[in-house]
């Protein structure tokens, strides 16, 4: 399979912290895959993604996009290959939805280019895909969190890049919006690397998963391979039971509070039990 993103020994530390935020991380994302990055808070998920989308520059190691060294590429060229949906999506000034989506066209534009009929068409399609076509003229600031997120993804679609980097794209959203957003992204048939907070979401949507803990990759594999009660206890320190869900065919994780385990007669089962 065709390797789209290759990360080789990535190490990064923030200036205010003497420990490495990310230490010697290596992994690959192949064409058409939906790859999840999971791990506890502060494990380095965002840091890895920020290094890939060049908000941060690696201290050590290298990142390759389609075999080309990321740091040797122009910012514009990187933007043509990968679209980013980050966590910070506030816009401090008045913009209508359409204008925000139109910003996704920027990397396609040279200095004196104006917006063409094709640009307008791409913008309209992107909004339609996200079910936001009738909100094109609304003020972005007046939208709800879920609507804003859909606009930002429409912007990424308008960018026409075949790699999507998502940094917890469904954070703080209702479950209906979470499902909707992952469904819509999945339907795009693009290569995705996404940091995901919710393990069940990761299990539902990811082809492969990398688990980060304290800035290092500790586990990797398919959701079935990664999500075992032992692994989850080792990484997150919580007990759970997992089973293959009869309808989705995916691993479904149920977390078990300490209080319930204490009073439960069969203590061993949740730890070792599997479908």
């Amino acid at each position: 399979m065709n390797v789209r993103i290759k990360i080789d020994g990535l190490t990064y530390s923030y200036s205010y912290d003497e420990n490495d935020a990310v230490h010697d991380v290596s992994f690959e994302v192949n064409e058409g895959e939906f790859v999840g990055l999971i791990g506890p808070n502060g494990s380095g998920k965002s840091t890895v993604l920020k290094n890939i989308y060049r908000a941060l520059t690696p201290d050590k190691g290298a990142i390759f996009l389609d075999g080309e060294n990321l740091l040797k590429m122009s910012h514009r060229k990187t933007a043509l290959k990968q679209a980013v949906v980050g966590q910070e999506n506030d816009v401090p000034f008045n913009f209508v939805v359409e204008e925000i989506v139109a910003m996704g066209r920027s990397p396609h534009k040279k200095l004196f280019d104006i917006d063409t009929a094709y640009d307008k068409q791409v913008i309209r399609h992107a909004l339609e895909h996200m079910g936001m076509a009738d909100m094109a003229k609304r003020n972005y600031q007046s939208l709800s969190g879920g609507e804003k997120q859909r606009v930002i993804i429409a912007r990424a679609i308008a960018q026409e890049s075949s790699i999507f980097l998502l940094d917890e794209p469904t954070n703080h959203l209702d479950i209906s919006y979470q499902m909707q957003i992952f469904d819509l992204i999945k339907r795009l048939k693009v290569t995705v690397l996404s940091a995901i907070h919710d393990l069940n979401m990761a299990s539902l949507y990811c082809d492969r998963i990398y688990v980060l803990k304290d800035g290092k990759i500790v586990l990797s594999g398919t959701p079935e391979e990664v999500f075992t009660p032992e692994n989850i206890f080792n990484v997150y320190g919580v007990r759970c039971s997992v089973e293959k869900h009869p309808i989705t065919g995916k691993i479904s994780i149920t977390f078990l509070p300490e209080e319930i385990i204490k009073t439960h007669s069969v203590v061993d089962k949740p730890l070792g039990g599997n479908a």
Partner: peptide, 23 residues
């Protein structure tokens, strides 16, 4: 005026502006 797109992108924050192709 030549760089109006860049000015717009900057309002999205440094990270997003960079991800949309601005140095």
């Amino acid at each position: 005026m030549i760089n109006y797109r860049g000015l717009n992108l900057l309002l999205l924050g440094d990270d997003n502006a960079g991800a949309l192709g601005i140095n």
